[in-house]
C-alpha cells in the first residue's frame, strides 16, 4: 500500500504527527493508519529476548511483566516518556521512526542492542538500532518501509543498568540530557539522548576497572559523541557538562548495583 499512495505518512500512535499538523507545518494528506492492521500490538518473549510489534504503546512496554523481567532497562526508559496519558497512545514504532534526538527510549534501545525489523514490498530486513539513527530526525528506514517490530535482547543475568533523565526547566519537561547505561559481562554500554542531533551509543570493556576507572572511561568514550544542539533548555556548554554529570551518576549507580548483586 505504501508504494501506491502519493505522499504517505505512516500513522502509528499519532501523538507526534497530530502536533505537527496543528502547528501548520505538516501537510501530509495520505495517512497510512496502522491501527486497523492486526498483529502489530503483540509482545512475545523467549529466552533470547523480546519481540514487540510497532503499535505496542510506550505504556505497554512500561507495564508489561515480560518486558520488566526480560529487559528492565527498556521498561524503565519507556516509563520516562512524556506522561502516562501520552504513553497510552504513543507507539514504539512511531517513536523510533520519528527519529527525534530527545526521545527517551532510543538511549535504552542502543545500550540493549535492540534491532528494528523493517518491512516493505521488497521484503523484511533487520536494522540494528545502533545503525538506525542516521542524522537529525532521519532514520535508516526507506520511504516505503514500515517498522514492523522491535527486538530487544534479554538483559544478561548479573547485569546492571541505570536510566537517568534530566530536565533543566520544569520537572516534567523534555529532557535536557538523558542516558541509559547497561553493564553486562564487564562490558559497559551507554546510550545518550538529547546530547547530539541523533541518539548516540558508546561502549567499553571495564574488565578489571574500579568504579572510578569505569566512570573515567565512560566520560572518555562519550566525549567525542557529544554534539548538543543549543536551545531554551541549555547551551552547548551546559549540555556537555550535564552529559558528564548524568553519565557519571548512571555508571556509578549501575556499578553499585553490580557490586551489590
Amino acid at each position: 500500500m505504501m508504494s501506491t499512495v502519493d505522499n504517505p505518512m505512516v500513522y502509528g500512535g499519532g501523538t507526534a504527527i497530530q502536533i505537527l499538523i496543528k502547528q501548520g507545518i505538516l501537510f501530509a494528506d495520505n495517512f497510512v493508519d496502522l491501527a486497523g492492521i492486526p498483529g502489530l500490538t503483540e509482545i512475545t518473549a523467549d529466552a533470547a529476548g523480546l519481540r514487540a510489534g510497532p503499535m505496542v504503546t510506550a505504556r505497554g512496554m512500561e507495564t508489561d511483566d515480560r518486558v520488566r523481567r526480560v529487559a528492565p532497562l527498556a521498561s524503565t526508559a519507556y516509563r520516562h516518556v512524556a506522561n502516562p496519558r501520552v504513553r497510552n497512545t504513543a507507539s514504539i514504532g512511531g517513536n523510533l521512526a520519528h527519529g527525534d534526538y530527545r526521545l527517551d527510549p532510543p538511549p535504552a534501545l542502543l545500550a540493549l542492542d535492540a534491532t528494528v525489523e523493517a518491512t516493505s514490498v521488497r521484503g523484511t530486513r533487520s536494522l540494528p538500532v545502533r545503525q538506525f539513527f542516521v542524522d537529525f530526525q532521519q532514520t535508516a528506514l526507506a520511504p516505503d518501509e514500515l517498522v514492523t517490530a522491535v527486538r530487544i535482547p534479554a538483559q544478561p543475568t548479573g547485569s546492571a543498568y541505570r536510566f537517568v533523565k534530566y530536565s533543566s526547566l520544569s520537572a516534567n519537561d523534555w529532557p535536557c540530557a538523558s542516558v541509559a547505561v547497561l553493564i553486562a559481562g564487564r562490558e559497559v554500554h551507554i546510550g545518550l539522548g538529547a546530547l547530539a542531533p541523533v541518539p548516540r551509543y558508546a561502549s567499553f570493556d571495564a574488565t578489571g576497572m574500579t568504579d572510578q576507572a569505569a566512570v573515567d572511561a565512560a566520560l572518555e568514550v562519550i566525549a567525542p559523541l557529544l554534539d548538543p544542539i543549543p536551545d531554551v533548555r541549555g547551551s552547548v556548554r551546559y549540555k556537555r557538562r550535564l552529559a558528564q554529570v548524568i553519565v557519571e551518576d548512571a555508571v556509578r549507580g549501575a556499578w553499585k548495583d553490580l557490586d551489590n548483586a
Binding site: 520544569s170 520537572a171 516534567n172 519537561d173 523534555w174 531554551v232
Partner: peptide, 10 residues
C-alpha cells in the same frame, strides 16, 4: 511543549 509551567512535580 516549550513554555514551562509548574507541574505537580515542581
Amino acid at each position: 511543549l516549550d513554555y514551562q509551567l509548574p507541574s505537580i512535580r515542581d
